[in-house]
Simulated assay, not measured.
Amino acid sequence: MARYSGPVCRLCRREGAELFLKGERCFTDKCAIKRRSYPPGQHGQGRVKVSDYGVQLREKQKVRRIYGILEKQFRGYFETADRMKGVTGENLLFLLERRLDNVVYRLGFATSRTEARQLVRHGHFTLNGRKVNIPSIQVKPGEVLQLREKSRKITAINESLEAVVRRGIPQWLELDKDAAKGTMKMLPVREDITMPIQEQLIVELYSK
């Protein structure tokens, strides 16, 4: 399946949660799920009995949509997390959090992960002084992400940095706004991921 290119507000309504896919719009009264908190479509307001499998599937789809990952790639992350030491569900979330596009978003250089992925693809950042354009790169503790000199006048990036206070920066990252760079201080922990995610349901789904 190709990457979804339709109206992203429908995805939030389908999952019944704010996924913050639309940037600053998600923090305003224009947010679709605040106006219509039921699934899209003509049967959206009907009563639907959801099975255990359905609950697990929806949780997996929700996390995929939050991070903008296709199914095959998401399954690969799960298999990697399953081979790692520790709790599989938490390992999965840590791998997703350490993606370069997510780090760009978390540091406030973009208002959404989709926008962050585009900025990375267009080569606006360096990692440890080297130009990068692969959104899935796993950032490691101690590595420095910096906005390239020629990209510092981009209005959208500057506006996003000014608005990052609303979203907050997690403790495992450090932002130097004046130098337009961020550092990964440590590995993320479960408490840093504040989205309403029940990762155990995903583990149960893939363990069948």
Rank of each mutant, 00 (worst) to 15 (best):
L93F: 01
L93W: 03
L93V: 04
F94C: 04
L96N: 07
L96E: 06
L96G: 09
E97N: 12
E97A: 02
E97S: 07
E97W: 05
R98Q: 12
R98E: 06
R98F: 07
R98G: 03
R98S: 06
L100C: 05
D101V: 04
D101H: 05
D101Y: 02
N102F: 02
V103K: 01
V103I: 15
V104N: 08
Y105L: 07
R106A: 13
R106W: 03
R106E: 11
R106T: 11
R106Y: 02
L107D: 06
G108D: 08
G108R: 11
G108Y: 10
F109H: 05
T111C: 08
S112T: 06
S112G: 10
T114S: 13
T114I: 13
E115V: 09
E115L: 15
R117W: 00
R117N: 09
Q118T: 03
L119Y: 08
R121C: 01
R121N: 15
H122M: 00
G123T: 06
G123Y: 08
H124P: 03
H124V: 09
H124G: 05
F125C: 12
F125E: 03
F125V: 04
L127R: 08
N128T: 09
N128I: 03
N128C: 01
N128F: 09
R130V: 10
R130Q: 08
R130P: 01
K131G: 05
K131D: 02
K131L: 03
K131R: 12
V132P: 10
N133H: 12
I134R: 06
I134V: 15
P135W: 02
P135V: 07
S136L: 02
I137Y: 09
V139H: 08
K140S: 14
K140R: 15
K140F: 11
E143S: 14
E143A: 06
V144L: 00
L145N: 08
L145V: 03
L145W: 06
Q146V: 01
L147E: 08
E149A: 14
K150T: 13
S151T: 00
K153D: 05
K153W: 04
K153P: 05
T155C: 10
T155I: 14
A156I: 14
I157F: 00
I157C: 07
I157Y: 03
I157M: 15
N158A: 13
E159N: 11
S160W: 13
S160F: 10
S160Q: 13
L161K: 10
E162G: 10
E162W: 12
A163E: 11
A163G: 13
A163K: 15
A163P: 06
V165D: 15
R166K: 09
R166G: 02
R166S: 07
G168H: 09
G168N: 14
G168D: 04
I169H: 10
I169P: 08
P170W: 04
W172T: 02
W172R: 01
W172C: 06
W172V: 01
L173T: 00
L173Q: 04
L175W: 11
D176C: 07
D176V: 02
K177F: 14
D178K: 15
D178I: 05
A179F: 06
A179I: 02
